[in-house]
Design a protein around this nucleic acid. Structure first.
Lengths: 343, 343
DNA sequence: TGTTAGCACTCATTAATAGCGAGTGCTAAT
DNA sequence: ATTAGCACTCGCTATTAATGAGTGCTAACA
């Protein structure tokens, strides 16, 4: 167990390093007003803290920097929740100022604002449509060979895809097709559609529609949900300004990873509701070794919809970011719940 | 006018620099097999070429590098069109291998493949919907207060937006609204819709729809086309690997510009059909000082739809990039024309 | 007269060197 | 238990010198 003095020193080291990005030495620590003992005492304590794994040296005679473990302890035990100042609150509120009814736009806005507020990179995972219910399927012929299928969910999400028509299909038959699909599938969850088409609708189609086999797969494909929800980014290039990324290999691997939606999705996928914090190597990703990721989820009622994350250096302003994320996600949840609860 | 020998030297300097990214000196030039005169002679010629503005020195005793003007001359007069090798052709063909009916996906694919083939950044400007004709407007109520309007064009493009309903609006009335809109607007170009709604449809709506004024603007907004077509990117981070961008300020301003869709749009907006080449400062953008942009347009029939560009360092493989872009854009135009011509 | 050999000069780059300063660990005195 | 003191480490910066790839200019040559 750490003594009070060790805690104090750890906290001051981390606060200082977050601010300066420079290793913190015993002498400069001893000058701080919070600290009333000599640099020699601090050196002894730092030596212990290092042995315990909370801080590290960059070389034998350097000052100390926090380790992942140090940040973890800081985040779990030492963090004083920061009050947002008026300007922050004002900016966050502006996300909801416009009357926007599309979830995606709101979420996208949140990412942008958040990145501006923090100067880090914001990543928002768009609302899941998996559990949305099908409102309506429209099939609209474009020309003799092609038609576009449009599905609309009960949250107003629209998704569409073109497919090829069999030669012989006429308008009446297309309409019949759409009717059957709507009769059978309206109200079903989006994620179940593809399944249901084969299990419950196929037979019906076979009876009523010519060229049934030709069109079945096209339709089924159309109803498939994308492998993951949309990702929205804000401040993708902000990390270029962080001193820890003034190293070409580091920035390159990070930027390349950010461009790869799959790996980003992998990073932010599983999150319990509330605030989730992954520090440095906890992210299990070499490109993220010097980064922390803080994620907050948003919901409608109790149903978790998506998440908003901040990606910053491990030397991140945890307190501020957590406060902001917490605030935004609560607001987002409240607004969305009010808008969409109990359709 | 340049002598043949000067042309030869200019060409060899540029070819060498494109390959090596290092200033080219007289001695190393004299060793090339194409060149059969002494380094002293070359120095004299280079001195002239510099005076004429085709090449530059990085410092008083350095080798020469091509200037923007040098590249421009090279591109306009010296470029030998390069034959694509089998592998390139194969990869380009793969863009069209899948049976995809959505223009946007094809264009997006082109950008990705092109960036992989060149290791530069590819930017595709999606198909313009401005001149598409309206196929159908659908209005689908989501709940008591909101509905989603969906418009479909004759090319299968779908665009949708949610809007708020007046309290008193019932289903029948919504349907009536949709019918009026379809009657009046089907077949009109997308860019004219917003206008027409106010000029030609407003009166009709006023007569038949309660709360006409409430809904008019919502509908009109929905029919507004976005300020510019979609942009698709490939290889956004490729420029990080170019030696000319191993400078933090440069890479930062370039990446930041790439993230700003507006400025990218500004760069690639106006292009005559065919291949367009902008070298370095010709782009009129400080972040692009060390970049060239080569753009090819694609069309359906003779109607220009969009463009595909390659953004690379001024020291770019012009010959190869031009060949690739030319090839892809022709293919794209051919495929699209075949698919969509004369709906 | 166009070409080339030769030479003095420039400048980026690299390696070696030294001094500075911020830091440490350890020891001994308080 | 705390602290003053001291030797030591190491990154950083500046200086210097050597190297080498390049230049421009001049004079000789074909």
């Amino acid at each position: 167990m750490l003594t009070d003095r060790q805690l104090l020193i750890l906290q001051v080291i981390i606060d200082d390093f977050i601010q300066s990005a420079q290793p913190v030495g015993s002498r400069s620590l001893s000058k701080k007003e919070e600290i009333s003992f000599s640099s020699a005492t601090i050196r002894n304590e730092m030596s212990d803290l290092e042995e315990l794994g909370f801080i590290e040296k960059t070389h034998t005679s350097s000052g100390r920097i926090p380790s992942d473990k140090g940040y973890r302890y800081y985040v779990d035990h030492l963090l004083a929740p920061q009050k947002l100042d008026q300007e922050d609150v004002y900016k966050v509120k502006s996300i909801f100022a416009e009357r926007i009814y599309e979830l995606e736009k709101i979420v996208q806005n949140s990412a942008r604002i958040l990145s501006e507020l923090t100067n880090y990179t914001a990543i928002a995972l768009g609302p899941a449509v998996r559990e949305n219910k099908l409102k309506k399927i429209q099939i609209i012929p474009i020309n003799k060979q092609t038609a576009v299928a449009i599905i609309v969910t009960d949250s107003g999400h629209v998704q569409n895809r073109m497919f090829q028509l069999p030669e012989t299909m006429d308008l009446g038959e297309l309409e019949k097709l759409a009717n059957i699909l709507n009769d059978r599938l309206a109200g079903s969850s989006i994620e179940s559609l593809n399944d249901k088409i084969y299990k419950e609708v196929a037979l019906m189609l076979r009876q009523h529609i010519n060229n049934y086999d030709f069109i079945l797969h096209s339709i089924a494909d159309t109803l498939l949900i994308p492998s993951h929800e949309k990702l929205f980014f804000g401040g993708k290039t902000n990390m270029l300004s962080q001193p820890e990324f003034h190293d070409f290999e580091k920035i390159k691997s990070l930027m390349t990873m950010i461009e790869q939606e799959d790996s980003i999705y992998e990073l932010i996928r599983k999150n319990q509701s509330g605030i989730n914090i992954k520090i440095g190597r906890e992210n299990n990703n070499t490109a993220m070794e010097n980064c922390s990721l803080i994620t907050a989820t948003y919901s409608i009622g109790t149903e978790q919809l998506g998440s908003i994350s901040i990606l910053g250096p491990t030397r991140m302003e945890y307190s501020r970011v957590i406060s902001l994320l917490d605030y935004i996600s609560r607001d987002l949840t409240a607004v969305l719940t009010k808008l969409y609860q109990g359709n």
